[in-house]
């Protein structure tokens, strides 16, 4: 019966095995997180690492999306005679979907590759074994701190992407047809509630979990020297981006059902 769903049993068992190992890894990390000692210092260092390194990228990507969105929406809205809805359209599009997903993807690339490569090179040079040999739980010191940092920083980075997107969305508007930022924001947010904006922003914490978990998992299971390190970095990025997009589908539906 299972073969109906699997085109090749090799691919299928490989896939199931990967998920099984990911689950075991996640369980190890969870166990380490809830028991002392807590790694506050390393957590703060990782939050800084994730936050400060991704902030300019995320804001820039958000800004670019804001401009594009602004130009294209203007075109279509004008054609259908709904130009007065333009600010709202941009605000909702940026905050509800573009900001979160852009942040998720940019961080998947920047942080996913970073964590994947860092942990992989520590693994192949036996540094992770050395941590374990000094009676320190590497899941707690290395994985838990990085995953938590991603979970905590993603919503903040999303706010930065949103801000960049709205600001440049407004700039693009006002270049085409002058409108004050104040007026743009006021009309854009009129009729909107926190319920519209908070869930999409906080759903990125789930993206953070996915990125951190996948990158740490890929890094810490690496084998095979320098080549393995490269592979771990690539796989971290590819799998993290893929799962972020897939999770987005589920989360959007979930938010629609729960909050509307």
């Amino acid at each position: 019966m299972a073969s109906v769903f699997c085109f090749g049993s090799g691919v299928c068992t490989g896939f199931l095995e990967w998920f099984g190992n990911l689950g075991i890894f996640f369980w190890q990390v969870l166990k380490a997180v809830v028991t002392p000692p807590y790694e506050w210092r390393e957590l703060i260092r990782q939050m800084d690492e994730v936050g400060s390194k991704s902030l300019p990228l995320v804001a820039l990507a958000g800004a670019a999306v804001g401009v594009v969105l602004s130009m294209e929406t203007r075109e279509s809205m004008t054609r259908f005679g709904a130009k007065s809805l333009l600010p709202s359209a941009i605000v909702f599009a940026v905050i509800q979907e573009m900001g979160p997903i852009i942040t998720g993807l940019v961080v998947s690339g920047r942080v996913g590759a970073g964590i994947g490569a860092e942990l992989a090179s520590m693994k192949v040079t036996e540094q992770i074994d050395a941590i374990e040999a000094s009676a320190i739980n590497p899941y707690r010191l290395l994985a838990a701190t990085r995953i938590l940092a991603c979970i905590l920083m993603l919503p903040l980075l999303t706010v930065a992407a949103d801000a960049g997107g709205l600001l440049m969305g407004w700039v693009a508007q006002t270049l085409a047809e002058p409108i004050s930022l104040h007026h743009f924001i006021n009309t854009g947010f009129s009729g909107a509630t926190l319920r519209d904006f908070l869930p999409p922003t906080f759903k990125t914490a789930v993206f953070g979990l996915i990125i951190g978990l996948v990158a740490c998992f890929q890094g810490m299971r690496t084998r095979g020297g320098a080549e393995g390190v490269g592979r771990a970095a690539t796989n971290s990025v590819v799998l993290a981006s893929l799962f972020v997009i897939l999770a987005d589908v589920v989360l959007v539906k979930l938010i629609l059902v729960v909050f509307h």
Partner: peptide
């Protein structure tokens, strides 16, 4: 105490 063959210092 453990000394690894390649030292395994934290780089």
């Amino acid at each position: 105490g453990f000394l690894f063959q390649q030292a395994a210092l934290y780089d």
